[in-house]
């Protein structure tokens, strides 16, 4: 591990106990403009008070449905969109105070979902990969790019001079991974990076991601809607609903028992793989509500089967589940004394 850091030239400052990145109360609200004079009429609360940290070398999976703010969170972490409120601390350095965007982006890179849209169609793939190192003034960018192409399984002699449209989706996504690695990042954000790939290709790319993590000592934030994939790759899982964190914890704990009713519904909504035991009833009715005007209190109360008056009235705080400090859920049922009829029973257990 120390070898990797020496190579990358980026030092591990706080030691293994210090989180690589801390997201503190991130908020991002987008104004929705409408009407002739583009007056501010409504706000999408895309990310509304999201906090978490990612330890060195771990993989944090983020799951949730469309509009839950997982992609916005990813773009906030890498500074592609500006924070409204909250802070980001990268290995002890706070963004905006100790380090600027430029330094942050040397340490954090991202792979996007659409492998085609994330490559410039007029550049050969070796030029695309070499772009970052060239900008950063690293030496021999082209050579570095060829090495990385080889590392992600694309023979540079055959592929380096090709254009994106001459590659398959899986090959393009390998190029995107190489491009992210060319910056020698410590954290790589994978925003639905394997979702658009065919299943057989997805498995190849997941194997590659696991190999690269070991080889380069990387930390991943892995965003996906596919719970099977998240389970396979993540150490911890964060579940988002309408811009908020509803549950976070070790993936085995969450996969064994979901504390938040929304998490439980997400798991129950996974298609069954057993033809003799098919899903008989949908866990939730209706679509996720509009993030423009999120429900009061617990945002899930409009679809929750356990909802009571307290859920609409007061926002639940993240509380510890099952005595395991790493496992937290924001639900009145798990908050002793919250006033929810199931809460006391839970506490008694």
């Amino acid at each position: 591990m120390s070898k990797t850091e020496a190579e990358s030239g980026q030092q591990d400052r706080g030691g293994p106990g210090q989180p690589l990145i801390i997201a503190k109360d991130l908020k991002k609200h987008f104004p929705v403009r409408s009407g002739l004079f583009s007056r501010r009429s409504a706000t999408v609360r895309a990310v509304d008070g999201v906090s978490f940290d990612v330890m060195k070398g771990e993989t944090l999976g983020i799951v949730g449905e469309s509009g839950c703010g997982k992609s916005t969170t990813a773009r906030l972490l890498i500074g592609l969109i500006e924070l409204d409120e909250g802070g980001i601390i990268f290995d002890g350095d706070s963004l905006g105070g100790d380090i600027g965007l430029k330094e942050l982006r040397r340490g954090v890179q991202m792979v996007f979902q659409d492998s085609y849209a994330s490559l410039n169609p007029r550049l050969t793939i070796v030029d695309s990969v070499a772009f970052g190192p060239k900008i950063q003034g690293l030496d021999k960018p082209a050579e570095r790019a060829r090495d990385l192409l080889a590392r992600v399984g694309l023979d540079p002699d055959r592929f380096a001079q090709r254009y994106p449209h001459e590659l398959s989706g899986g090959q393009r996504q390998r190029v995107n991974i190489a491009r992210a690695l060319a910056m020698e990042p410590r954290l790589v954000i994978l925003d639905e990076a394997v979702s658009a790939l065919d299943k057989s290709v997805e498995a190849q790319v997941l194997n590659l991601l696991n190999d690269l993590r070991r080889e380069f000592g990387l930390t991943y934030v892995f965003i996906s809607h596919d719970l099977n994939v998240v389970r396979y790759i993540s150490d911890r899982v964060l579940v988002m609903y309408l811009g908020e964190v509803v549950e976070i914890g070790p993936s085995e704990a969450i996969y064994a028992k979901q504390a938040h009713p929304y998490t439980a519904s997400l798991f129950a909504a996974m298609p069954s793989m057993d033809p003799d035991n098919r899903t008989e009833e949908p866990p939730l009715a209706g679509d996720p509500p509009n993030p423009i005007d999120p429900p009061s209190g617990c945002r899930f109360h409009t679809r929750c089967r356990f909802a009571e008056d307290v859920c609409a009235a007061r926002k639940p705080a993240l509380s510890i589940i099952g005595g395991e400090e790493a496992h937290l859920a924001a639900c009145h049922i798990h908050e002793p004394g919250s006033g929810h009829s199931l809460a006391n029973r839970e506490a008694a257990q």
């Binding site: 449905e65 469309s66 809607h225 719970l227 519904s265 997400l266 129950a268 909504a269 996974m270 298609p271 899903t279 008989e280 009833e281 949908p282 866990p283 939730l284 009715a285 679509d287 996720p288």
Partner: peptide, 10 residues
């Protein structure tokens, strides 16, 4: 989305 998909399938 996953929770809507299962509704439509059923």
């Amino acid at each position: 989305d996953a929770t809507v998909q299962i509704q439509i399938l059923l």
